[in-house]
Design a protein around this nucleic acid. Structure first.
Lengths: 162, 162
DNA sequence: CCAATATATCTCAGTAGTAAGGAACTTGTG
DNA sequence: CACAAGTTCCTTACTACTGAGATATATTGG
């Protein structure tokens, strides 16, 4: 597509290896930054006996109301077996309940129980504040720029896999 | 420190919530981008029967030579039990071997075997090319900028945990 | 030198997840 | 209608870890 890549029999090894080195460095830094920020989130929710994935389910239901399990799965990005397991656990903790779906009897809703709703009202704001604190080494403008770059990168990488 | 945060009794809720929303969005986009890129890497090394973590160990030894297990652990960022398990597996595959350390008999080196060296010579270049492809939605300049922002973010978030 | 502490690896039990396949149900087609 | 194909969730078996504690060795201060 771009003029730089139209020919393949005359390569420029030096430029190629500079590109490779840049990409590899980015890969490492991206993984570490994500891990570091996730650890902040994880430490925070662990104080309430929750994992990040459990919290992500609660957060989706908190902000969007009852969702079909498949919808939750798409938000949380976990396998189908994983979402069953997650909702089982949250049901065991009394924070979430399954409800029937009239229109499609294969499907089930997940919904916050009253206890789940109460818990989220209490712990979501400080959790959000902790995420904000973790990001606060960057200015708002930098955070927006970073978000834009990561969105481009993420959707391009996603589309490579299907 | 900064002029905006010197006072705590007069807040600006609107600005606070804009900051929170930006930070939360960044958190989601960061996690997804990292997952998407890691999936590319993972799919690539899976063709050779390796996990990302196994490949990371091989790569460290390939580029730096024999390393103490603790040093490998710091590079790959897994628990102490995890590094033992990883090196066990790679030893089982004949790609890595443990060696004694004269100066400190508690410690052990991990080193590539000849088979490990051969394998890495063969699979590292196409792996690097795949990472480069996954990043190629961004220009080189954007990749460098992204790296700089992520480095800032990552080390700040790290220092919050100790 | 001895005791206390620190360090490096390993062991073991437990956990969060995946992947593949199956049961129940729905939808589309002849 | 009847049947094939698709979907929604669940089950099962497995995997890659983590975290706490054990073991062996090293270091430090008295």
């Amino acid at each position: 597509m771009s003029p730089d890549t139209r020919s393949s029999d005359r390569r420029r090894p030096a430029a190629d290896s500079a590109e490779t080195a840049t990409a590899l460095k980015l890969f490492v830094v991206l993984s570490r930054a994500a891990t570091a920020v996730q650890r902040q989130a994880s430490d925070d929710v662990a104080r309430h006996g929750l994992t990040i994935s459990e919290f992500a389910v609660l957060e989706a239901l908190f902000h969007k109301g009852p969702l079909l399990l498949g919808e939750v799965q798409r938000v949380v990005l976990v396998s189908s077996g994983g979402i069953t397991f997650l909702v089982d656990r949250l049901e065991g903790k009394g924070l979430v309940e399954r409800r029937e779906c009239q229109e499609d009897r294969r499907a089930r809703y997940a919904a916050l129980t009253r206890a789940g709703e109460t818990l989220m009202r209490r712990i979501f704001p400080p959790h959000a504040a902790r995420i904000r604190a973790a990001m606060s080494a960057l200015t708002l403008a930098q955070q927006r720029e970073l978000t834009a770059l990561l969105r481009t990168l993420g959707s391009a990488a996603d589309s490579l896999s299907g």
